[in-house]
Design a binder for these strands. Structure first.
Length: 481
RNA sequence: GGUGGGGUGGCCGAGUGGCGAGGCAGCGGCCUGCAAAGCCGUAUACGCGGGUUCGAUUCCCGUCCCCACCUCCA
């Protein structure tokens, strides 16, 4: 059975076949680095990380690209505001910060958030400002093809001519005439209010560093253009998959498609969009302010649990966050991990492709049905625990390898966790806890259960969980499997 | 107004024309000195009203409600 993916453009599940057998070219939209990442950003990154991992587990080489949009209106506005009189600096927005410094700083914040959740870096991560000449070339092609024009006023803007491209709206199946009129206060030199800027002429007050000489005068690129320019540069004029958040479908992806297709590029064969993250039913967004940061989540739960939470719903579904959700995820992750550590010897080598259960493969091949795949994982854990209880070591180990494989494919083995098992503090703790356990063992063998239980309660209160096994007592820290 | 996605047991969340995924929480049991972990069992779930059908949560029609997008959005 082959991989099927839901393509937003055709609104249906389609068999996925890469253009080049064995290699998949994937572009997915990263962030406009104008602020700290919120959960929606990392959900999207986790979703596409999952896709990449599954493609790889299925034997593909994945050429992945994720953009950094490091210039746009918001970045400039925020930088500009930091110079204004009466500006009150905060930890996230210091005073007098140039736009490029602000963008660079938040780009790093995104990296930290991705890294913390085991989202692997894409093969290439190009910045918009590094591809101005590629954008020139694209604009030039559009002008020559009659799909872009210089603004009628003296703004120096260049617009995409929506009416010149009959397919405009094909991605979201909308017709230009049915679109709600943009409340465009400043139509400037546009022919149609839906026309969008490819190039924005330099305005007084904009920093000189945020403008480039172009054939149409000094200025800066419009939003959308960078993704068309960069995706085709790194992946070719036709590539396999273009992804991003559902909210980017319109206008961002619609415009990308229009400008690339109108310039004569084949562009993406598949369009994938992940669902939004909501907070108790409402979309999390900067403008509403109901966001939860990845940092806040990481304070509440282990990184693995956070990743599990973000990946557990189907990627196209809305993912609702509510208090307590992370604790549930933590319980599920710990159940799986404690099984794997019971079933497998200290060190084991994993050859993923040898241990993928058929049900898991079928679920993932079905448009990355992670919830169904997780059901297989949990069933494997139960079967493995049963085998352990029955003393069937080889069956337990087999289930253990399968469970570890699935965890690996889901990216849950790569999530960095604080290492509590080495270092001087760890060995001091080990010595102290072991001394208590020895005392408890003595008390137990003397049938002095009062003392034994007191020791256990005391350790428990300190966050050390005791488990008695036939081989003696073992301990672990709460929240650390 | 246009476009798209939804309403599933206490919560989360898949899925299917007829054997009630999975997780979390709960309850009962096994195990345990007692626990923990693990295992077994346990829920009269599919917004509402019609229709098609031997049979619908699943298909069709109607209806109510929710969410997203329509030029800041992952």
């Amino acid at each position: 059975m082959a991989l099927r993916l839901y393509d937003t453009k055709t609104a249906q599940l389609r068999d996925f076949q890469p253009i080049k057998p064995g290699q998949v070219s994937l572009y997915y939209c990263g962030a406009t680095v104008q602020g700290r990442p919120h959960v929606g950003h990392v959900r999207s990154a986790v979703a596409f990380d999952l896709l990449i991992r599954w493609l790889e587990a299925s034997g593909h080489d994945v050429l992945s690209v994720r953009n950094v949009t490091d210039i746009d209106d918001k970045i400039l506005e925020k930088s500009q505001a930091s110079y204004a009189e009466g500006f009150e600096p905060t930890a996230d927005y210091p005073a007098e910060e140039p736009w490029f410094a602000l963008a660079y700083r938040f780009e790093q914040a995104f990296h930290e958030a991705y890294d913390a959740l085991g989202v692997r870096r894409p093969r290439y991560e190009p910045r918009a400002t590094g591809h101005i000449t590629e954008m020139f070339a694209l604009i030039q092609r559009l002008i020559e093809a009659g799909h872009a024009y210089r603004a009628a006023d003296d703004s120096g803007d260049v617009y995409f001519d929506v009416r010149s491209w009959p397919k405009y709206g094909e991605l979201t199946r909308q017709s230009v005439d049915d679109m709600q009129d943009a409340p465009d206060a400043d139509p400037r030199g546009k022919r149609d209010s839906r026309d969008f800027a490819l190039w924005k002429g330099h305005k007084d007050g904009d920093p000189e560093t945020a403008s480039w000489d172009s054939p149409w005068g000094r200025g800066r690129p419009g939003w959308h253009l960078e993704c068309s320019a960069m995706s085709t540069k790194y992946l070719g004029e036709t590539f396999d998959i273009h992804g991003g958040g559902l909210d980017l479908r319109f206008p961002h992806h619609e415009n990308e498609l229009a400008q690339s297709a109108a310039a004569g590029d084949g562009f993406a064969n598949f369009w994938l969009h992940n669902g939004m993250v909501t907070y108790e039913g409402e979309k999390m967004s900067k403008s509403i302010g109901n966001t939860i940061s990845p940092e806040e989540m990481l304070q509440q739960a282990r990184p693995k649990a956070v990743r599990y939470f973000l990946g557990q719903a189907h990627y196209r579904s809305q993912l609702d966050y509510k208090p307590g959700a992370l604790q549930e995820a933590e319980a599920a992750v710990e159940r799986i991990e404690s099984f794997i550590s019971r079933a497998l010897p200290e060190s084991f080598s994993l050859v993923p492709q040898q241990h993928i259960p058929e049900g898991f493969r079928a679920a993932m091949d079905d448009d990355l049905n992670v919830p169904a795949a997780l059901a297989v994982l949990h069933e494997t854990v139960r079967a493995g625990n049963t085998a352990i209880d029955a003393g069937d070591k080889s069956a337990a180990e087999q289930r253990g390898l399968e469970a570890a494989t699935m965890m690996s494919i889901l990216g849950l083995l790569d999530v960095p966790e604080p290492d509590l098992s080495s270092g001087p503090a760890a060995s001091a703790l080990e010595t102290l806890v072991q001394a208590q356990l020895d005392k408890r063992a003595e008390a137990k063998s003397a049938k002095d259960f009062g003392t034994a239980d007191a020791i256990r309660d005391q350790l428990n209160a300190a966050g050390v969980v005791i488990e008695d096994t036939p081989q003696g007592a073992s301990w672990s820290l709460k929240g650390d499997a």
